[in-house]
């Protein structure tokens, strides 16, 4: 993909992010942070590419280290978000 195409996606996604995040209820701002934490670890994609590639041993080990770090974040982030969200209950009537 050329740079302009990617840049267009980025700019549009910033607008989507702006509107979606303002619609998040303030009561859920902490889960918002933990879930954004988990999804920003989509950087694992780059880590997987590096660890699967032949050609540079250092690059491969850096990739594997990044896979471990990103996985901690992905699993930890989603798990702690789910744990928090399970605590939010409505009033019993």
């Amino acid at each position: 993909m050329d740079f302009i195409a990617i840049f267009s996606i980025f700019v549009l996604a910033c607008f989507v992010g702006y509107f979606v995040v303002w619609s998040v209820t303030p009561a859920l701002h902490t889960p918002l942070m933990s879930v954004t934490n988990a999804i920003s670890s989509v950087i694992i994609v780059g880590a997987l590419i590096a660890s699967a590639a032949a050609g540079s041993a250092t690059s491969k080990w850096l990739g594997l280290a990044a896979v471990v770090m990103a996985s901690i974040n992905i699993f930890g982030g989603f798990a702690v978000t789910s744990r928090m969200l399970a605590m939010y209950k409505k009033k019993e009537r």
């Binding site: 996604a13 910033c14 992010g17 995040v21 918002l32 954004t36 999804i39 920003s40 989509v42």
Partner: peptide
């Protein structure tokens, strides 16, 4: 890119 933009704006 989409995730980065979302998290960045958030």
């Amino acid at each position: 890119i989409i995730t980065g933009a979302l998290v960045g704006s958030s």
